[in-house]
Structure formats: C-alpha cells, structure tokens
C-alpha cells in the first residue's frame, strides 16, 4: 500500500469512527453480503496523555471501542475500530472499508463519506462559532497623563 493510499484509508476510517451510529445506519441501510473474520467485539483502548502536554506519556483512562473484521464475497477484507459499543456501527465501518479497498460500489461509498465529512465539518463549524462568540475583547482604559 502506498503512503497516499494509507493516508486516505486513515482519513476515512477516522471519519467513519467519529460518525454517529444512527446516521451511518441511515446512510447505509442495506448491508452487502459478508462473512466474519472477527465478529464485532466490544473492548477498550487505554487513552494516553503526556505529562505537561508534551513530556512523558501517562495512562489517562480507557474508552469503549468496538472492532470487527469481515470479508466480502470477492475476498476483500475490511477492518473497523470505532468508539463506543455499537456493533452495527463497527459492521458498517468495516463494510465501507472493504468496499473501498476493493473499489466496489463507489456510487455508494463516495457520497456517503462526502455526507459524513460535510456534516462533521458543519458540526465543528457551529461549535467554533459558538466558541468565537465567547472570545473576550479587552478594552484598555487609559488613566493619568502617561
């Protein structure tokens, strides 16, 4: 896999992991035939931080994660690691990964990812705008002669 393929895969897997499970279910109601190489499994990831933001790593606490690996009829394999405990979320993320890896159904996967990206960007834009509205504008008052 070339670096750019890897970057692309990394990018859309992140989008799929952050998607809301119900939204993904609405965008991909029909699941292509697949067999499990690893059925959806709920577990955790230990989240690490760094001392002083940039020093030694430390263990902050865990988060729930669901993972699975599946195979399409043509042999294409898809993986998913997604936040939370929704097995349908992990299944759909792995299916989309498999479809993209085998170049199948771009008419499904491309608009789906575009929609998720657009919605995520919009959610973030609104949050940024709310934060910006609470930014303090200081007024300096001058006292005395100098």
């Amino acid at each position: 896999m070339s670096i750019s393929d890897q970057d692309q895969r990394k990018d859309y897997m992140g989008v799929l992991a952050r998607a809301r499970p119900d939204r993904l279910a609405a965008l991909l109601p029909d699941l292509p035939d697949h067999t499990w190489l690893r059925a959806p499994e709920i577990g955790t990831t230990m989240v690490r931080g760094r001392v002083g933001a940039s020093g030694a790593p430390f263990n902050l606490g865990e988060m729930t994660v669901t993972r699975c690996t599946l195979q399409l009829a043509d042999g294409a394999v898809g993986h998913a690691y997604v936040q939370g405990r929704d097995k349908g979320h992990a299944t759909r993320a792995a299916l989309i990964d498999a479809l993209i890896q085998s170049g199948q159904q771009p008419e499904v996967t491309t608009p789906l990812l575009t929609t998720l990206r657009t919605e995520e960007t919009e959610r973030r834009r609104i949050r940024d705008a709310k934060a910006a509205a609470t930014k303090v504008e200081f007024f300096t008052m001058v006292r005395g002669e100098d």
């Binding site: 577990g43 230990m46 690490r48 760094r50």
Partner: peptide, 8 residues
C-alpha cells in the same frame, strides 16, 4: 483491552 492510544 485492545491496546493503548498514541498520546493525545
């Protein structure tokens, strides 16, 4: 536990 994250 599936693993540990990269430091955030």
């Amino acid at each position: 536990r599936f693993g540990a994250s990269e430091p955030v």
